Computed example of a mutant assay.
Amino acid sequence: MVLASPAQRATDVDGVKNYRPVTATSISRHSPRGKRHGGHIDPSALPHIYAPMALKRDLHPMPDFVREALLEHGLTGLYEARPDYQRNDYLRWIASAKRVETQRKRLAQMLDELAQGDVYMRMAWRTRS
């Protein structure tokens, strides 16, 4: 079994090393390992390879004014359809504003992006199909 080097290991708060398995599908046939095997990798022939696992962020609770705005604009379903990281990022971003005016401006941007459907934090985004 191949493990990530000490420099690549991720350590969580308790000091425990976190690893996630990397499957054969994540190895490109253009990688050195893929070229050695003629570009064809049989997943069953590979041992599990471990790489660092990303640490999870704290989940932010949804403020009441955000919930009310989603209901009022009929965007709750579109909000729930977004990936967890996007929903969490929006809530953290809105809640981190110190002024009420800034919170409202950020909430308006989130609602607009949800309504458009192909934008996340002013970047082009589309769902995986």
Score class of each variant (00 low, 15 high):
residue 33 R to H: 13
residue 7 A to H: 06
residue 111 L to G: 01
residue 88 N to I: 02
residue 25 T to I: 08
residue 116 Q to P: 00
residue 94 I to H: 00
residue 90 Y to H: 04
residue 76 T to Q: 13
residue 11 T to M: 11
residue 81 A to C: 12
residue 120 Y to L: 02
residue 107 L to Q: 07
residue 103 Q to V: 03
residue 19 Y to H: 14
residue 101 E to C: 00
residue 53 M to I: 08
residue 21 P to W: 03
residue 12 D to N: 14
residue 40 H to V: 15
residue 86 Q to R: 01
residue 90 Y to L: 01
residue 1 M to Y: 09
residue 26 S to N: 10
residue 76 T to H: 05
residue 114 L to R: 01
residue 38 G to E: 10
residue 6 P to H: 01
residue 11 T to Q: 11
residue 36 R to E: 13
residue 99 R to C: 06
residue 113 E to P: 00
residue 98 K to A: 14
residue 92 R to S: 05
residue 86 Q to C: 00
residue 108 A to Q: 08
residue 45 A to K: 15
residue 91 L to N: 02
residue 104 R to Q: 14
residue 126 R to D: 13
residue 111 L to F: 02
residue 21 P to D: 04
residue 88 N to E: 04
residue 29 R to Y: 07
residue 53 M to Q: 15
residue 45 A to N: 12
residue 13 V to H: 05
residue 52 P to F: 04
residue 92 R to I: 11
residue 111 L to T: 02
residue 123 M to R: 14
residue 77 G to Y: 02
residue 55 L to R: 08
residue 28 S to D: 10
residue 57 R to P: 03
residue 72 E to W: 10
residue 20 R to K: 13
residue 42 D to Y: 05
residue 114 L to G: 01
residue 76 T to G: 04
residue 5 S to N: 13
residue 73 H to T: 15
residue 12 D to F: 03
residue 19 Y to P: 04
residue 117 G to W: 00
residue 113 E to M: 03
residue 18 N to V: 13
residue 14 D to N: 12
residue 87 R to P: 00
residue 22 V to I: 15
residue 16 V to Y: 08
residue 37 H to C: 11
residue 110 M to C: 05
residue 60 H to K: 08
residue 99 R to G: 06
residue 76 T to F: 05
residue 36 R to G: 15
residue 2 V to P: 15
residue 31 S to C: 10
residue 53 M to P: 02
residue 52 P to G: 13
residue 108 A to R: 08
residue 9 R to D: 04
residue 48 H to A: 14
residue 82 R to Y: 04
residue 63 P to E: 02
residue 3 L to W: 12
residue 122 R to N: 15
residue 36 R to H: 07
residue 115 A to L: 10
residue 63 P to F: 03
residue 73 H to V: 07
residue 16 V to A: 12
residue 119 V to P: 01
residue 20 R to C: 06
residue 4 A to Q: 06
residue 1 M to K: 09
residue 117 G to A: 00
residue 17 K to E: 11
residue 13 V to A: 12
residue 40 H to A: 09
residue 119 V to G: 01
residue 36 R to N: 12
residue 57 R to N: 08
residue 27 I to Y: 04
residue 58 D to L: 10
residue 86 Q to E: 10
residue 4 A to S: 09
residue 90 Y to M: 01
residue 112 D to Q: 11
residue 116 Q to K: 14
residue 39 G to T: 06
residue 34 G to S: 10
residue 43 P to M: 04
residue 91 L to H: 02
residue 58 D to N: 10
residue 77 G to S: 13
residue 129 S to C: 03
residue 40 H to C: 06
residue 13 V to L: 05
residue 67 R to Y: 09
residue 3 L to P: 01
residue 123 M to E: 15
residue 101 E to S: 14
residue 81 A to R: 15
residue 96 S to A: 15
residue 67 R to F: 11
residue 23 T to C: 04
residue 82 R to H: 02
residue 118 D to R: 07
residue 25 T to N: 12
residue 74 G to K: 11
residue 39 G to L: 07
residue 100 V to W: 08
residue 30 H to V: 05
residue 50 Y to D: 06
residue 119 V to C: 10
residue 26 S to V: 11
residue 105 K to N: 11
residue 124 A to R: 12
residue 107 L to V: 02
residue 55 L to A: 11
residue 69 A to R: 06
residue 47 P to T: 12
residue 127 T to F: 14
residue 104 R to E: 13
residue 27 I to N: 00
residue 74 G to N: 09
residue 4 A to P: 05
residue 114 L to I: 07
